[in-house]
């Protein structure tokens, strides 16, 4: 076993910070995708038509109940065979966004259900069109209630990004791994990756709790 070397840490830091930037990009873009897609699922699942709710419901259940890693492999290794290929990071963002959209859909559903029925009735009594009712009445009220839960999924997604290294995305774990593979010394790179994760995710979750207390009164 080697002793801990701060010099070594200093040498590998630039590469790990490059990886961190990729990790942050994947998380933020994945979150945007998950927020948007999840909202689409949540609204589609409230459609009066079974022709909409059934396929969307099946898709959501399927994606939620299969592992993210399998989905990433499918997107990265299988889809190109059908002529659909994207770069590693794009594939990773699609995979994270799609996977987590099945959870955010559930968050939105709960938030939407929590809006009192009287709000829908008042909108009907004013003849507001359905789209306008969603945009102006229901979603703004649901939003306050869903922000904390959505934030928790952002943190969970952040901690899932190392899976993207399996499809050659140059995230933190990927960088640490490739450093270790050349120096045969994994202790510092892997430890630093762990520390960077907690340095970011812990304060973020504390911040979220503060936000939660402000929004949900």
């Amino acid at each position: 076993m080697n002793d801990w070397s701060w010099d070594y840490v200093g040498d590998i830091m630039p590469k790990l910070l490059d990886g961190l930037w990729v990790t942050v990009q994947a998380t933020l873009l994945g979150s945007v995708a998950a927020f948007a897609l999840g909202l689409v699922w949540a609204i589609a699942l409230r459609s009066p038509s079974r022709w909409v709710t059934w396929p969307v419901g099946a898709l959501v259940e399927f994606v939620r109940n299969t592992p993210l890693l399998v989905q990433l492999f499918f997107l990265f290794f299988v889809l190109p065979g059908w002529g659909l290929s994207f770069g590693p990071l794009t594939t990773g963002v699609i995979g994270l966004g799609l996977h987590y959209s099945t959870y955010t859909a559930e968050v939105y559903r709960a938030g939407i259900d929590a809006v009192p029925r009287g709000q829908w009735e008042a909108a009907t009594a004013l003849s507001l069109p359905r789209g306008r009712t969603w945009v102006a009445v229901i979603l703004p009220q649901a939003f306050r209630r869903v922000v904390p839960a959505l934030g928790n999924y952002v943190i969970a997604m952040f901690k899932d990004t190392p899976m993207l290294s399996a499809i050659t995305v140059g995230d933190m774990l990927f960088q640490a791994n490739s450093i270790g593979a050349t120096t045969f010394d994994y202790m510092e790179p892997i430890t630093v990756v762990g520390v960077l994760f907690i340095v970011i995710s812990y304060p973020t979750s504390v911040l979220l709790r503060v936000l939660e207390r402000r929004l949900v009164r």
């Binding site: 009192p116 009287g118 709000q119 009735e121 008042a122 009594a125 004013l126 102006a136 009445v137 009220q141």
Partner: peptide, 12 residues
Amino acid sequence: GMVFQQFNLFPN
């Protein structure tokens, strides 16, 4: 038009 027992104003 209708006025409800619980007002049902849009709180947002």
